[in-house]
């Protein structure tokens, strides 16, 4: 009996251990599932904690998959009516003050989006982490009293904005509670921290996130979701260039 138990342990032990600790790829797939929906409509507030004061913006965003989104700035008055349309790897911004559509391309993609710690390039991240990066599980830690896996990601393509990422993924909620984004040289470029999460029909979703461009002064940009609707119907015309305009 004892021999049979030991044999079973020898045969099933590694499998049981595997079942307890998923691979890096599995973790990323679960994370994608957690936040992915066919369509999304959200209203968020973005607070830029600048060196010389805070600035708040409110934006309504319609998203379809990973590569189509349309944003409309609702406040403040100065930015009200500004629209952004992302279609694949193309991005346009409509400025109501000049009634002008500006195509954001080339070096402009690296510029700060609305003065925040996010760049337009961040907005252009179309691929899921599984598709874009090779991942490696490098350890387990405790972060904010929660058990997390530590993952190191290396970009599959050299043109990716961040060549390396380090993720601290909550073992229960499958959300990256902290991310560090690096350049090819290994220089830290950005830090992302999830400050608050919310439950959705699909799982857990980051409600309040702090983005910090470490090359920029200030205390970072907080992005907070005020309203979120998953998988609502969105007319195709929403993601048409004709929707940019008065």
């Amino acid at each position: 009996m004892k021999k049979t138990f030991l044999l079973a342990l020898a045969l099933w032990g590694p499998t049981l251990a595997w079942a307890a600790t998923p691979t890096a790829r599995q973790i990323l797939e679960r994370m994608d599932k957690n936040t992915f929906s066919q369509t999304q409509v959200s209203i968020s507030t973005m607070t830029v904690h600048g060196e010389r004061g805070d600035r708040n913006m409110t934006v309504q965003t319609w998203t379809q998959g990973k590569d189509r989104s349309f944003s409309l700035y609702l406040a403040p008055a100065r930015d009200k009516g500004t629209k952004m349309l992302k279609l694949g790897d193309k991005l346009w911004i409509y400025y109501p003050s000049a009634d002008k559509v500006v195509a954001i391309a080339g070096h402009m993609l690296k510029n700060s989006m609305m003065g925040s710690d996010l760049s337009y390039e961040d907005l252009m991240e179309n691929s899921s982490l599984v598709e874009a990066y090779e991942a490696q599980l490098v350890g387990e830690e405790t972060l904010l009293d929660r058990k997390v896996w530590v993952l190191e990601l290396t970009a599959k393509e050299p043109e990716r904005a961040y060549q390396k990422r380090k993720l601290w993924v909550d073992q229960q909620q499958y959300l990256a509670l902290r991310q560090e984004l690096f350049a090819q040289s290994g220089m830290l470029l950005k830090r992302i921290e999830v400050k608050e999460v919310m439950a959705t029909a699909k799982g857990w979703y980051p409600k309040r996130v702090l983005f910090k461009d470490v090359l920029k002064t200030g205390l970072g940009t907080q992005w907070q979701i005020e309203e979120l609707e998953l998988d609502p119907p969105i007319p195709a015309s929403r993601f048409n260039k004709s929707s940019l305009g008065r």
Partner: peptide, 16 residues
């Protein structure tokens, strides 16, 4: 013509 620049806050400033 349109001037496209960055404003004091780092946002894009666009004016005809």
């Amino acid at each position: 013509v349109t001037m496209i620049g960055s404003d004091f806050n780092g946002s894009m400033a666009v004016v005809n």
